[in-house]
C-alpha cells in the first residue's frame, strides 16, 4: 500500500513540528525518516499512524483520503520506541492481542490464532520464550516481540518509531540485518524513524531527510549521500570540511575571507601529496595523525589557520610516510558549493 502526505502541518503551541510537509511513499518500499531530534520525524510517523492529528493537510493510503479515520480503522502496524509491550501479558498473549480483540464475526478461531502466533514466534526466533513476560526478555527480544505483535494483524503498512534506539550497538547491527531480510521476504510498505544516519543509509531503500519540520531531501541512500541537495543534508550525513570561498568563472577559490559561497568537502575526498600535481590544491601543515582503524585520520592546519580533516586508506598512508609537523599539499577530489544564504537557512 502506498502512503501519501499532502501539506501536513502540525504545531505544539508555539513549536512547529511539521511545516507543510509533502511526502509520497510507493508501495512495498522500506523508507527511513532521518533527522535530528525535533525535526518532526516522529510526529509525521504518528500522524500517518493516526496517533496524532495534523492541524492541516491530508494523509492518503493507496490514494484514498484517510485523514479522518481513527488509528483503529487505519490498520497500520506500529512499533513503539520503547516497545509498549503489555507488561501483564506473556509474549504469546502480546502477539495474540490484535487477533483476540477483533469483533466476534471477524475473529479467527482459537486454533487459528494459536497457529498464527506460533508462525510469528518462529519468524522472530523466540518459539521457546512464548510464556515469558516482557520484563523477562532482553531489549532485542522485546523489540522482536513488538514487531511480531504488529505483524500479527497483517497490516498493510508497518511503521517503526526509532526501532533500534534503545539497544546496544551489537544487537542493533543484528536486528538491522534481520529486519532487512524480513522486509525482503514480506514486502510490506515500511516506514521507520531514526536519527542515526548510518542506520538509515544501511537499511532503507529510500531515505527522507528532515530538519525543522521540513523535508530536506528524498532519495536512495547513495543519492542523498553522494549528492546532498542542501548543506544540512551534507552536514548531517557524515563528516565534512567547510571552507568559505567563491566561485569565479567556473573555478572554485577557497580562502578564509572570500564570502558569498560555502565549500563542503568530505574528509575522504581530500588527498594529501608532497608535490602540487597541477590541479586544485592548498597548503597545510600536519598537526595530528590517528592511524587506528581502517581509515587513517589526519588533522592539518591551512596557511590561514583553519583546521582540515583528511581520511585515507591505510596503504595510501604507508606509501606516503607522513610525519607530524610536515608541510604538505591538500588536493580536493570532489567538492560541493552552496551559496551562503542557502547554508544558513
Amino acid at each position: 500500500m502506498s502512503i501519501e502526505a499532502l501539506g501536513v502541518t502540525k504545531k505544539f503551541g508555539q513549536f512547529t513540528a511539521l511545516d507543510n510537509v509533502d511526502l509520497e511513499i510507493p508501495s512495498g518500499e522500506l523508507v527511513a525518516l532521518l533527522g535530528p531530534s525535533g525535526s518532526g520525524k516522529t510526529t509525521l510517523l504518528r500522524i500517518i499512524a493516526g496517533l496524532e492529528f495534523a492541524d492541516s493537510g491530508t494523509i492518503r493510503f493507496d490514494g484514498r483520503d484517510i485523514s479522518d479515520r481513527t488509528v483503529r480503522e487505519r490498520q497500520v502496524g506500529f512499533v513503539f520506541q520503547h516497545y509498549a509491550l503489555f507488561r501483564h501479558m506473556t509474549v504469546f498473549e502480546n502477539i495474540a492481542f490484535g487477533l483476540r480483540v477483533r469483533p466476534r464475526e471477524h475473529r479467527p478461531s482459537r486454533e487459528k490464532i494459536r497457529a498464527k502466533v506460533q508462525e510469528l514466534l518462529k519468524l522472530i526466533q523466540l518459539e521457546n520464550l512464548a510464556q515469558r513476560y516482557p520484563s523477562q526478555l532482553s531489549g532485542g527480544q522485546r523489540q522482536r516481540v513488538a514487531l511480531a505483535r504488529a505483524l500479527a494483524v497483517e497490516p498493510s503498512v508497518l511503521l517503526l518509531d526509532e526501532p533500534f534506539g534503545a539497544l546496544d550497538a551489537k544487537v542493533r547491527q543484528e536486528l538491522r540485518r534481520w529486519l532487512r531480510q524480513l522486509h525482503d521476504e514480506i514486502h510490506i510498505t515500511s516506514l521507520f524513524v531514526t536519527h542515526d544516519q548510518e542506520e538509515a543509509l544501511e537499511l532503507a531503500n529510500r531515505v527522507v531527510v528532515m530538519d525543522h519540520g521540513r523535508i530536506e531531501q528524498v532519495g536512495a541512500p547513495d543519492e542523498v549521500y553522494n549528492h546532498p541537495a542542501t548543506p544540512f543534508v551534507y552536514n548531517f550525513l557524515g563528516n565534512v570540511n567547510l571552507f568559505h570561498g567563491r566561485v569565479d568563472g567556473g573555478k572554485t577559490y577557497i580562502h578564509e575571507r572570500e564570502t558569498g559561497h560555502l565549500v563542503y568537502v568530505r574528509p575522504h575526498l581530500l588527498d594529501i601529496a608532497r608535490l602540487p600535481n597541477g590541479g586544485d590544491h592548498f597548503r597545510a601543515r600536519i598537526k595530528h595523525i590517528n592511524a587506528a582503524g581502517p581509515l587513517v585520520k589526519v588533522e592539518a592546519v591551512t596557511d590561514w589557520g583553519a583546521l582540515v580533516h583528511v581520511e585515507m586508506p591505510q596503504d595510501r598512508f604507508s606509501t606516503l610516510h607522513l610525519l607530524k609537523d610536515e608541510s604538505v599539499f591538500v588536493i580536493p577530489r570532489d567538492l560541493k558549493v552552496f551559496k551562503v544564504h542557502e547554508a544558513e537557512r
Binding site: F12, F15, G38, S39, G40, T43, E52
Partner: peptide
C-alpha cells in the same frame, strides 16, 4: 515514564 502530560514531539 512517558508522561502523558508532556507534548509528544520530543523525539
Amino acid at each position: 515514564a512517558g508522561n502523558p502530560l508532556e507534548p509528544s514531539f520530543v523525539q
